[in-house]
Design a protein around this nucleic acid. Structure first.
Lengths: 338, 338
DNA sequence: GGTCAGCACTCTACCGGGGAGAGTGCTAAT
DNA sequence: ATTAGCACTCTCCCCGGTAGAGTGCTGACC
């Protein structure tokens, strides 16, 4: 595309994302292209409309980017907006005072992301395909009930109440835990599976079985924590003035299974993904754009982080800040998770 | 108040909560009081309006209950609506398949409550004033970094990364954990405080100090988990058609500190509290009603459970179902928490 | 061929008037 | 105390007319 057309498309996107009002040739002329006439701009706009990048709400209105218009902008025209020092400091502070536990951390990440992008955010807890076990603990609850506590890499705690076939004193459980720790701690989950195969029948095998069950759930990600925040930010945008639009977005966010699907989209893809309007699989997200990236304490442990807003979103700002949050969060988790 | 006035007020509340349309004398006459004339009903309505229980959106519209009207209804006229067997079964199923950990449980409770009341829900994790310690564990992370894991009654896990002044091997930490368990497990938090006072300087005292810090945070409730769900249900109601109303509610729900204040209101009060419209401390909840109760595995461990909806809420249904959810959740937690 | 001024055209948003409908309060009779 | 009848009030909705914004097109200019 000729560079002037590109410049005009960029200007339309920029103008529309800030004003939310369809942009006309005069506005463009006075604010962006003082040495072009509005007639020339009009003919360029008409061309861009023919190419499918712009559309008009009605005949005598200004132009609005289409989903493909935004796509072209994002793919070819966007350059990341620098992040103000204040925002950078805010991100840093919020994440470095975040709680060390999984849930507190993920919630803080989502909160921070929503605040700095002024959109809705989602975050899923980091998760790896072959979990490493750091520590195992067994606590006697009732004669035949044991609480199994598992500490995984990333300092993730998992607990499960186990009904055992034979009773066990705390003293016995403590010895058993010591044995399990000697065998498993610092090892990956496959070691637990190996030991389970070769273990003789008895309490130890029983408990190893439950350890494996917990690891399975974790590795399949079926208990994966997903949080969202910042829906209130969306309500400031005119596209969510009628609450039916909010309703659709909230259905996606509050129904965790939808969200999980959404986040799975990222797996196996590049580290930054932008899904615009009709590109969304879910029909409820028409008119919305989703910007996704990954984060986590290490290469093997990754969660997904995303921003959800109207397609009329300040993409260059959103992407920059999303990446900054992802980086800060990853750093912080790496420092904690060891 | 004469019983006929009461009957009419009850009818107005019932009619308005189901139809959301101001109710007129004719509608009342044909649906509730066939052997009274509409003129008689009109004069009763006028009386009820004088008493402050009803109001009209405009001169020639039907009547709508005021906040005091709802208050009178709730205090004197409401009788709990029986819960259909299907709903009862749903509650039971959802809560009995809930995860055993704190966060999973609280989220499931909020989700269930939102589903059966068709309103927004909030739930805070149960919390006690004098925590009982079930188990302590110490895991070596780096030479001078220890992960402290604390299991409290209700099977609540708390973790904290502790920087120690002296390095310690895992073997030493394991022995230390055994000592701490012997001293603390089964005891309440004051025992930890006593031992801290009398402990000689050193790693043990250092760690005891962190145990106490964790207990403090827990007992002050400042890390108290609060979740909400079901905002999408509100959007089906006409009072939330303009999204500015949703915005106000979401600000309360997403700003956890507001929510914490809201839930604190219940402490020291009766086990069922209904806050209607202007009775709300927060101005953002004008037009909303909040119904609150407590739940938890034991008398000492209580969380707050609440329903948030428009003042035009089916109070008798909401209260009945809220209490049913609270009871089922409490039972389930008692069975798990031991 | 690109650029541009001028102009007719189109469509929305807004305003005010008028009629239908719902529901009231009042009055007078029972 | 209850009720039928009636005038009154207010909203909602439809309608037409207008101002304004922005377009597309045409013809001239470089």
């Amino acid at each position: 595309m000729e560079s002037r057309k590109q410049a005009i498309l960029r200007a339309v996107v920029h103008e529309f994302t800030t004003s939310a009002v369809p942009v006309g040739s005069q506005a463009l002329q006075s604010r962006y292209f003082v040495n072009l006439s509005s007639a020339t701009i009009r003919s360029e706009l008409a061309d861009l409309a023919d190419l499918g990048y712009l559309t008009q709400p009605h005949t005598s209105a200004g132009r609005v980017p289409t989903d493909s218009g935004y796509r072209y902008f994002v793919d070819f025209l966007m350059d990341l907006e620098p992040i103000p020092e204040r925002v950078r400091a805010y991100i840093h502070d919020e994440l470095n005072t975040a709680p060390a536990d999984e849930q507190g951390m993920v919630e803080r990440v989502a909160m921070t992301l929503a605040a700095v992008t002024q959109n809705a955010s989602v975050a899923s807890a980091p998760q790896g395909s072959l979990a490493r076990i750091k520590h195992v603990d067994l606590v006697s609850l009732e004669p035949k009930e044991v609480l199994l506590i598992l500490l995984l890499e990333g300092n993730l705690l998992r607990q499960q109440v186990v009904e055992t076939s034979e009773g066990a004193t705390q003293a016995l459980l403590t010895r058993l835990a010591a044995r399990l720790n000697a065998a498993l701690s610092g090892r990956a989950s496959d070691e637990a599976r190996r030991r389970y195969e070769s273990a003789p029948l008895g309490l130890e095998k029983e408990l190893l079985g439950r350890v494996i069950a917990v690891l399975d759930v974790y590795e399949k990600g079926s208990d994966n924590l997903v949080v969202h925040d910042g829906v209130r930010n969306l309500l400031r945008q005119p596209e969510f003035a009628e609450s039916s639009r909010v309703h659709q977005v909230l259905e996606v966010l509050e129904e965790t299974r939808y969200l999980t699907v959404l986040l799975r989209q990222l797996i196996g893809n590049s580290d930054l993904q932008i899904v615009i309007g009709s590109e969304n699989a879910s029909s409820q997200l028409q008119g919305c754009a989703v910007v996704l990236t990954t984060y986590g304490p290490s290469d093997r442990l990754k969660g997904v982080l995303g921003v959800i807003g109207p397609t009329r979103m300040a993409y260059s700002q959103t992407v920059a800040r999303l990446q900054a949050v992802a980086r800060s969060a990853s750093d912080r988790m790496a420092a904690l998770g060891v």
